[in-house]
Nucleic acid binder design. Sequence first.
DNA 1: TTTTGAGTTGTTCGA
DNA 2: GTCGAACAACTCAAA
Length: 447
Amino acid sequence: MTDSVLWFRRDLRLGDHPALTAAAAAGTVLPLFVLDPRLLAGAGEVRRNRLLASLQALRSATDGALVVRTGNPVEVVPAVAAEGGAGSVHVSGEPFPYGRRRDARVRKALQDNTIDWVVTGTPYAVGPGRVVKGDGTPYRVFTPFSRAWREHGWRDPASNRSVRWVRRVESEDLPTADDDPRAGEQAALQRWAEFRDDDLVRYDRERDRPDLDTTSRLSEHLKYGEIHPRTLLADLVGRRGDGAQRFRTELCWREFYADVLWHRPDSAWHDLNPLPMDYRDPDEQFQRWQRGATGFPMVDAGMRQLAGEGWMHNRVRMITASFLVKHLHIWWPHGARHFLNLLRDGDIASNNHGWQWVAGTGTDAAPYFRIFNPVTQGVKFDPDGEYVRRWIPELAHLPGKSAHQPWKHPDGYVGGYPERVIDLGAERTEALDRYSAARADNGSGHH
DNA sequence: TTTTGAGTTGTTCGA
DNA sequence: GTCGAACAACTCAAA
């Protein structure tokens, strides 16, 4: 007799897993993952394969017990629980909008079958909604949030206990995906150990340098819950260096955006602070942005890295996003959706609120005159041009930082690199005009 | 309630 | 080449 189902979602690991600990304490555990067509619809090939590879790893870790079913969780979860004779379904809490709606329905369906629904923990060190101001309302500015978040603190990592896995119900075969050495809990733990021991001391100084590539690369592991942020924070206790402090702050950004989205589920795809901007519809220029053919090396290198690797350096995400919104004047959700389709670490809170930050509609709205110049940014953060040459073979012949300005080099275009799609200065002015018009509109609209 | 200080990540221009 | 000012005004958080 199976005692409980552990329904895995964004927690594809066995270590430091409070919901698993709770389920295992109650008896045998039937591990389940539901391939939800609604969630997979927005995911491109890279993301789909990344998920499948992680599930493959989880199946091995559970001694082959992991049951995988395709379908609507509202039907699948109660059915599996009933087939397995489980008295309860254990989960990690899910704070994102779709997951919250889904879980409310699954919970109700389970109640109708007199099966318990037990929520333990979340994918965050501090559960979204927990950090609030003195008056009980949520923070909307990062710095004070981060202070309160640190003061709030978090539990110690959950202790692992031995689990008696059972697999009494049928599972679908996992669709075969290419072997992905970067997927799974073991890969996550190994990546963390390498970063912590090799790159953390340089992190504060070098994290903005896409050519050096000394960021943690943990985002995709955190996205699938292959490692829990609490595990990382516990491992950093006592480390006072700039690198450790900075890394804690970056983890806090992930928690902050999850908190904002928890309080304002509508902000996933709508302006957190509405701005009546006049945007252009996606067109030929949008397509050139997508495929990395704008003629601006830093933008194109980033977009090609995204397409080629399913990942983009954070500094370059800002540059490419700013270019789409403030030079091509295209609405941020178009860009956010493209990123989410391709990013292995695609996380709706971090991604979409990052885009809103760029667009000036989110938290800590950037002053509208803060417009990234992709050439200046390129020279500053990729000073030797190594990053752009790595991703743009047409520029391989241009030495040093001249790769950032092929139009200034007599042989700049012999490699076949495209001409610039726009005039940077003219479109910067255009953006400033559009923003001040929107602000004027906003003012009159409220009075 | 009022006041005060502060707010991730920038660019350009002119001295 | 370097450096400071201008680019604006609003909202948030806390005293």
